[in-house]
Design a protein around this nucleic acid. Structure first.
Lengths: 208, 208
DNA sequence: TTTGCGTTTGACAATTTTGTTAAACAAAGC
DNA sequence: GCTTTGTTTAACAAAATTGTCAAACGCAAA
């Protein structure tokens, strides 16, 4: 065995995720991935058979990682408002890690509609179903303006994901450095909460 | 001159826009575009020099088209609430025409950061600047919760654009047909208004 | 030291994709 | 009819990209 041994496979995956999900190079070639990882291109085929196969694996893994964190938050026993605040917090933080993940999914599912079913079909239905009982309770109690669980979830996803998707454009338009952008996103957590609930996020909810 | 004459150039542009902006084939090849338009592939180079050059042209044109409509709405003399309602309406309708335009821009600017500056640098700064005076007036008058012009604009963009970007995923998740999706978007216009302003859209604002 | 085994590499083949070009074509004007 | 002009086509060349393979390599056990 060589010095790196099993670490190489992880290195390649890590660098590929960086290219696809962080830098937004949706068309990164196997050569570019190999260069980024500093390895020979043939290794990518040795470990992952083909480019497509690797893409599938990366998507599966990354979405699964996200899914687990989201589920943990939404199925906790915390009050509704706290749950949502935590959800916003987690989505923004995950988005900072992989800003282009959503864009990648959108792109891949447009090219390959069957993949959409494999990847996210079961996932997000459950997410809006998961929230519906509590949501309706909040609405009935007058603590939230009437809205369907679907629109509520999409509002949440939109408000958190869009600024991440459009990272490059937003930075260009508003002349933000990388640190300015991070600060902007931190601000946004409270803005999103306020937009969703129409009132300020309580101070006792800890963000990061 | 042949029968079609100058119509061919427009036909190619139209079909290319369909592939890129409607179907979301961000990697459509010159051959695929030619097939879609039913012409010989060499014609694409005859009219547009290169694929990259054509992409630039399509982006410029389509963004300009959008920009003109948005500007007309936002610089009208209508009251603030009406203006925003019209803005939401126009963005959703434009989005129905070109669901993947934003996705395409995001993708292209990620690959080619210089392009971001050419395309949208001047545009949207003005958009948020355009609204700021009235926005601050509304906030001062207590008709709107305090928010910066930038976050306000991004909220609007996010809530309208995201459901369009994620069209394929949303249809898969919620099992929506194309007509169901259109109906969903029509509903969404009022949802977005309510989410932004915290109250229902007045009935006297006409949304075709 | 030598053998074995998983890892890494460079070279190769096949395919795809872009861009060029010379020739064919069609219509309008002479 | 013939020429001119702009359009369209098929064939070709060049580059990029993916995937395969045999050989080289490095470490560990015999």
């Amino acid at each position: 065995m060589s010095v790196d041994a099993a670490q190489t496979e992880d290195l390649i995956k890590e660098k590929a995720k960086l290219l696809f999900f962080q830098k937004g190079f949706l068309n990164a070639t196997t050569q570019e991935i190999a260069d980024e990882a500093g390895v020979n291109r043939a290794l990518i085929h040795y470990y992952f058979r083909s480019r497509e196969h690797m893409l599938d694996l990366l998507l599966q893994e990354t979405i699964q990682e996200k899914r687990i964190r989201v589920r943990a938050i939404l199925s906790s026993s915390a009050p509704f408002h706290v749950k949502i605040a935590n959800y916003i917090n987690a989505l923004v933080d995950l988005g900072l890690k992989y800003p282009y993940l959503e864009n990648f999914i959108i792109h891949e599912t447009a090219r390959n509609p069957e993949r959409a079913k494999e990847l996210c079909s079961r996932d997000r239905v459950k997410t809006s179903d998961l929230l519906r009982p509590e949501l309706e309770q909040e609405i009935a109690a007058g603590r939230l303006a009437p809205i369907s669980a679907e629109h509520f979830m999409i509002n949440l996803s939109a408000l958190t994901n869009y600024p991440l998707l459009a990272k490059g454009i937003l930075q260009t338009i508003h002349g933000m450095s990388d640190t300015a952008y991070r600060k902007f996103l931190a601000e946004r957590k409270r803005i999103i909460y306020r937009t969703i609930f129409g009132q300020d996020m309580p101070d006792d909810i800890s963000l990061e």
